[in-house]
Amino acid sequence: MRHKTFFWFILPTATAMLLFIALPIVSVLIQSVFAPHEAVLREVENCTPLVGCTTETTIDHDATRALREAQPMGRFVGFEIFIDRGHLAFSEVAEAWSASDGLGGFADQLANLPFYRAMAFTLTFTFVVTPLVIALGLVIALAVNALHVRLKGLAIFFSLLPFIITPLIGALVLFWMIDSRGVLGSAIQWLAGDPDLSLKASTGLMWVALITYGVWHSAPFAFVIFYAGLQTLPMDQIEAAQIDGATRWQRVRYVVIPHLMPLVTFVALIQIMDNFRVFEPIVGFNASAHAQSLSWFIYNDLGGETRQLSSASASSVLTIIGVAILLSPVLVRTWRDFKKKT
């Protein structure tokens, strides 16, 4: 295809992505180094004959508005927002480092800083859910593959439901069941013999519940991918392994899993990207007191009456850097493969 034809074909989609993905990234970057103007203060001297003179500080509304209109971006503050208490909190971290005696104490101190708490949950969620999803998906795929043909369609239909469902709705449906008054919640209380057991009261339980939701939601995706991979299984290799005396487990371990390995990489890549943006379950589970993710952190800044754009932008930039770090091994590998090919 000639360059010119290619250009016209790609133009609409490229424009959409440029305007609504690339430009917002730039705009987020710029916003993160500007803070809103502080109100302009004015000192007024009030003199009354008997009391004497007092000076009063008032907000000069006209001057403030004029300043805000003259520079709508706000005032330039450099990386100040990035290192304030709400984000990377350099001074607090340094203080915690010098004050605490061990690594454990330091970690406890870090857990009190909102950004590090959100980061800890996001990373835990990503790196616990992803392997569990791959393992569960693989087992479901192997089990469904052994079913009778007629049952396979039905099994796939029901398995797809948790994946296709709107994340917020799926989270709510689960949350209403494991709520202390819901059916699973009561069952757990009965099993544990503790009538006061409640998700809302325990950080640990809330994390477990969120991770359970994550696995429940994404396992069908891994299952469908692996199931498709199993349909192209090299039968001759399986038979050869069997003739060589491999047990069923050994055939799975040494033939089936290596065959599925590229798919495992694919699922892991997609899952890391998707789990890193974990957000809806925290809203659905009303879990923000116990677990916050980076996305929720941004959402919280943006919502409400006061839209804290600068703070949200700084969190966004840090999140994007996080995504870039997570993706870099994949990108480097793709680049090497591409180099080899050309």
Partner: peptide, 23 residues
């Protein structure tokens, strides 16, 4: 272009929302 699209795919949409608000 495809690699750029992949990177864009990895962005959590909410990180972009902060950039839309002001304009």
């Amino acid at each position: 272009l495809l690699i750029t699209a992949l990177i864009f795919r990895a962005m959590p949409p909410i990180t972009l929302v902060a950039g839309y608000m002001l304009p």
